[in-house]
């Protein structure tokens, strides 16, 4: 599959503070790509570098074959971005904000906007200042989707959305993706990644520590081990040759053992903690 986003050796520091270091990954056309990591891991820095909000120190970002710095304006024509905060101009009406976003793209998106507002139940007559976080997020979704971009980038999209709207949101993503769009979902809600994403990248302390299919991440060589032996109960992740584990266990008096594929949450913690419980 063709890569629509290719990031190579991206490095960004904020003065002496770390932003991201040597991050490289690709996003393929037509996939939903999860971008996982705790707060401060570097997800937003990577996204903000992609969108030209910040200037990165080194590396390269190609989106739809274009350079993220030189062709920044052209790239944004084909990108729909939903920021995590979803803040707009408080004095503007919802309909004006949606039209403003379309006008800035020099596109008539009225039909698509109408469809999205109907499905997400957006009240376009209200002023932005009257909206709750969830309703502002819905406006943000409309602004990101109405021009039917080739790439969607959502930063923590579901916070504040009720479960019904969350379902509609993911249905919409799947519809656009089925029509050929690509989606990056930056989140720390792991069930969302497990349920909706094809592949995912895990960020930790500004570094990309793993990129793989969600399936492979869960069924990777790391195993979750729950063991009661020699009167003690232990729970840990094991990665490596399974024969080493068996040899190790044979030295103990095992009372009970459960070895299984880890959940995505376990995987995430395993990677996040740098395998400190790893044996």
């Amino acid at each position: 599959m063709e890569d629509v986003i290719r990031i190579q050796n991206l490095t960004k520091h904020y003065g002496k503070k770390r932003g991201v270091e040597d991050v490289s990954f690709e996003v393929r056309k037509g996939e939903i790509f999860g971008f996982i990591g705790p707060n401060g891991a570097g997800k937003s820095t990577t996204i903000r570098s992609m969108l030209g909000f910040i200037r990165y120190d080194s590396g390269s970002i190609k989106i739809l074959g274009m350079d993220a710095v030189k062709d920044h304006e052209n790239i944004l024509r084909d990108v729909g971005y939903m920021p995590s905060e979803a803040l707009f101009y408080p004095a503007m009406k919802v309909s004006d904000v949606i039209r403003y976003a379309a006008d800035a793209r020099k596109k008539d998106c009225s039909k698509e906007a109408e469809k999205l507002c109907e499905r997400l139940q957006v009240d376009t007559s209200k002023k932005i200042r009257e909206l709750s976080l969830g309703n502002r997020k819905k406006v943000s979704i409309v602004c990101a989707m109405q021009h039917r971009p080739e790439i969607f980038i959502f930063d923590e999209p579901t916070g504040g959305l009720d479960p019904l709207v969350q379902n509609t949101f993911f249905e919409l993503i799947k519809e656009y993706v089925n029509e050929g769009a690509t989606c990056i979902l930056s989140t720390h809600i792991l069930p969302e990644v497990r349920k909706h994403c094809d592949r995912a990248a895990i960020m930790r302390d500004g570094h990309l520590i793993k990129t793989d299919t969600v399936e492979s991440l869960i069924h990777s060589t790391a195993k979750s081990v729950k063991l009661t032996a020699d009167g003690k109960t232990e729970e840990y992740m094991f990665s490596g040759d399974i024969n080493d584990l068996i040899r190790e266990l044979s030295l103990k008096h095992v009372e009970n053992i459960c070895i299984e594929d880890p959940s995505l949450e376990d995987m995430f913690m395993h990677f996040y903690e740098g395998g400190k419980d790893n044996k």
């Binding site: 969108l51 920044h72 803040l87």
Partner: peptide, 17 residues
């Protein structure tokens, strides 16, 4: 200041514009 920059700059307009 109003955190609307991300919305504005996600539209296809350069900073010069």
């Amino acid at each position: 200041d109003g955190h609307t920059g991300e919305f504005l700059f996600s539209l296809p307009v350069s900073r010069s514009k």
